[in-house]
């Protein structure tokens, strides 16, 4: 079976149990609706922020819960958006006098469940704000489709809104801030392998030795094209051009640069790739103010990477600098 699983039906629950066992003092777990929240978040005197999406993208989002980041995460099944009841329970749990902000990646399942939950919550008199994240340039944005996907750029929305909420920003300000981050962030990914959901156990797609899935999603959805293998530098150059050209990022821009591993990529290779990304940014006249190399938004054990670039201004730079604390402990 080639995965560390017990009964696949219990996979998400067992992961969450591991997570709270590892963070007994800082996380709380509502077992009925599988909501992970930061200890004490429900009493904090500020707007609280919640995000829900399918599981299998860890550390997104259950391991992005903590001071200065998310107040709560509502994980669905592996690659399946949480149900409406879960979303509603998440909103209710994080409700307070200043309202609740939810962040949602632009996938139809996520959008529909959160929209329904928002309607229900508002009918109960809860003030709800929402920010939709759609940073993936691999997917053409067009009115007769679902539009672009939300991928790792999401982390910058969480970080900025988390820091601003800690500073006391109100709900409308946070919505505007989240949209501003989303407007300024772009991503794209490539993969050298598929991934296996615990309940399926076969790879969602299989690649030949010489094939690359270009513009891949984070759910094992195949990308826009299957291309022939190239060197790391060539692949990064292709990805960089599409990401940087989309906003576009211009000479003189200050940026945050992220090379995100999709789950099965050696850390060494991520740094080989980051090296090229930083070089390309420099050549384009961009100043890399902050960088992030590691796993932020994964697709189980997929071997691949994504590049995310965020255009900064003084406000965003300050928010990225603010302290934050997440469950992952480095030494």
């Amino acid at each position: 079976m080639a995965k560390f699983v017990n009964d696949p039906a219990n996979f998400v629950t067992e992961m969450l149990e591991g997570l709270v066992r590892a963070n007994p003092d800082t996380l709380e777990w509502d077992r009925e609706y599988n909501i992970i929240s930061a200890a004490g978040a429900a009493n904090a005197d500020r707007v609280r922020i919640v995000q829900g999406s399918g599981s299998g993208h860890e550390p997104a989002h259950v391991m992005a819960v903590g001071p200065g980041m998310l107040d709560a995460a509502v994980p669905g099944g592996v690659f399946a958006a949480p149900s409406m009841d879960q979303c509603l329970a998440g909103i209710r749990a994080m409700n307070g006098p200043k309202g609740v902000l939810y962040l949602v990646n632009n996938y139809q399942g996520d959008r529909m469940n959160w929209d329904m939950a928002q309607e229900m919550a508002e009918a109960e008199g809860i003030r709800v704000g929402k920010v939709v994240i759609n940073d993936d340039v691999a997917v053409q944005d067009s009115t007769h489709t679902v539009g672009r996907r939300g991928v790792a750029g999401n982390f910058f929305v969480i970080k900025a809104c988390g820091a601003a909420s800690a500073n006391g920003a109100d709900l409308d300000t946070l919505v505007a801030l989240g949209e501003k981050v989303n407007d300024n962030v772009r991503s794209m990914g490539v993969a050298l392998s598929g991934c296996r959901p615990p309940a399926k156990q076969d790879p969602i797609f299989t690649l030949g030795e010489n094939e690359v899935e270009f513009g891949v999603g984070i759910h094992g959805e195949p990308g826009r094209a299957r291309i022939a293998m190239k060197s790391a530098d060539e692949l990064m150059t292709d990805v960089f051009e599409l990401v940087a050209g989309d906003l576009p990022f211009n000479k003189g821009d200050r940026v945050a640069l992220m090379v995100n591993g999709l789950g099965g990529t050696p850390i060494s290779e991520l740094y080989v790739l980051y090296r090229k990304a930083a070089e390309l940014a420099e050549e384009r006249g961009l100043t890399v103010v902050r960088n992030y190399v590691g796993e932020y938004c994964t697709a189980l054990e997929m071997n691949g990477f994504s590049l995310t670039m965020l255009r900064l201004d003084d406000e965003l730079e300050g928010l990225l600098d603010a302290p934050a604390q997440v469950p992952i402990r480095v030494f």
Binding site: G77, A80, S83, M84, Q86, G109, N113
Partner: peptide, 13 residues
């Protein structure tokens, strides 16, 4: 709608 996430929950619900 209570138990099913993804697109299927809202659609079938």
């Amino acid at each position: 709608t209570g138990k099913v996430g993804g697109c299927s929950g809202p659609i079938w619900g």
